[in-house]
């Protein structure tokens, strides 16, 4: 039996991207570095014909995702949602994210939203205090590009274990905020 002992370039890429997705969720609030910037590289490691997705305001990404065989569906039906949360209108739209059921809380949506983790004072967003599983004590962070109304919307959507899981993406930077994380706006 001949076995390939080395992964292909694509296999290495999706493996590395997933590792960041996993650690981002296991250690909420810490910035992870992706092997490649952007949503497409993340999607590649997770999404295929067995999933559904919803993309707002990014036709190129929607096309890339459709090539994986995944089904484009409405936001309320989607497993994976790629959408901005930068304006009150964006946030209102995101209130329909799937939160799972008590028997199957894993049937909840995962949201990927663009954000800025930079230090520039303009548009850094409110200071957030995160606590919960994966966080040693508490962690504070600021994420620009996310409308302040997002955080109250998130809080009212989550009735743990029901709720959606969130990834904020800034280029090759990634922050995970699962539904188990308590977020306080300071």
């Amino acid at each position: 039996m001949s076995l390939e002992l080395l992964p292909t370039a694509a296999e290495s890429r999706t493996n590395a991207a997933f590792e960041e997705l996993m650690w981002a969720l296991a250690r909420p609030g810490l910035i992870r570095r992706l092997p490649l910037a952007g949503f497409a590289a993340l999607a590649e490691s997770l999404i295929d014909r067995e999933c559904s997705f919803h993309v707002r305001h990014d036709a190129a990404l929607a096309e890339r995702l459709a090539e994986t065989g995944a089904r484009a569906v409405s936001l309320a039906d989607a497993d994976y949602v790629f959408a901005p949360a930068g304006s009150p209108e964006d946030v209102t739209a995101l209130a329909g994210l799937r939160v799972g059921t008590l028997s199957y809380p894993d049937e909840a949506a995962t949201l990927f939203a663009p954000a800025h983790f930079g230090q520039e004072p303009a548009g850094r967003g409110p200071r957030l205090r995160l606590s919960g599983p994966g966080i040693r004590e508490a962690i504070t962070l600021q994420a620009g590009g996310v409308d302040p109304s997002f955080w109250p919307m998130r809080e009212s959507a989550i009735r743990y274990p029901l709720g959606f899981d969130l990834y904020l993406v800034d280029g090759d930077g990634l922050i995970g905020i699962p539904r188990s994380t308590k977020v306080e706006v300071l």
Partner: peptide, 11 residues
Amino acid sequence: RRRILKAIAVP
């Protein structure tokens, strides 16, 4: 991978 992420999200 998809299942592991959900498992981490709901310990």
